[in-house]
């Protein structure tokens, strides 16, 4: 009897209570699955990612997809209007979402999105940062940690030189970006708790 699915990866926040769990999942996966596929296609283009073992590629993507989606879809959270646009195009005010049961996670997502967007990164910088986010995902499932660490180091070095080149007198931007990594992890943990209450059969 769940009435709402307050996740912008869904086409809309409303769930038809007559629909079965499977039908709800089918509708959700129409927008969620392509978004995840896009993350995988992005990962394939990260220099060095395909050199990782297949299981490690899967583990990194499994652990990091949520955090990449948060960065990729930060613009869905409109800080000025205090609205969230779902992938189906529907726009909801913060108050409406709170009335549907949204809580701390919504506040934290807004906070994160605002700060990220305020950095005013170029597409190239955002893309490289997103690559760093993916390879910085939780490593508990990783077999060859050294190769993931080496890839992360290479990408962080590339990010630093790109930011320094484009923003010569704003060295704080690079530091702020690295500080986003733990922020993303805590968003991920908060979101995982929500997932525990949502079982897909």
């Amino acid at each position: 009897n769940r009435m709402y699915l307050v996740c912008p990866m869904n086409t809309s926040a409303h769930v038809d209570p007559q629909k079965s769990g499977h039908e709800v999942w089918e509708e959700f996966s129409q927008s969620f699955t392509p978004a995840v596929r896009e993350v995988v296609e992005f990962a394939k283009k990260i220099p060095g990612f395909r050199d990782l073992s297949q299981p490690d590629q899967v583990s990194l993507l499994k652990a990091g997809t949520f955090e990449v989606l948060v960065v990729r879809f930060a613009s869905l959270f409109d800080v000025k209007d205090r609205t969230v646009t779902f992938l189906g195009g529907k726009k909801y005010s913060v108050d409406a979402l709170r009335a549907m049961g949204a809580g701390d996670l919504l506040n934290s997502m807004f906070d994160f999105s605002e700060k990220l967007i305020n950095l005013g990164l170029s597409e190239e910088e955002m893309s490289l940062f997103t690559a760093v986010v993916l390879v910085s995902a939780d490593r508990s499932g990783i077999e060859n940690v050294n190769s993931v660490e080496a890839l992360q180091e290479t990408l962080i070095r590339a990010l630093r030189s790109l930011i320094t080149k484009n923003h010569p007198n704003e060295s704080a931007i690079f530091t702020k970006l690295l500080l986003k990594l733990p922020d993303l992890r805590s968003l991920n943990n908060m979101h995982s708790e929500q997932l525990l209450a949502f079982k897909v059969h």
Partner: peptide
């Protein structure tokens, strides 16, 4: 509920997308 991500069948979507071009390479 040990692994929340698998709640969404995430691993399945990822494997298929990753394997996607393996099949292409084999063709």
């Amino acid at each position: 509920f040990s692994d929340p991500a698998s709640n969404l069948g995430l691993e399945d979507i990822i494997r298929k997308a990753l394997m996607g071009n393996l099949e292409e390479r084999q063709e």
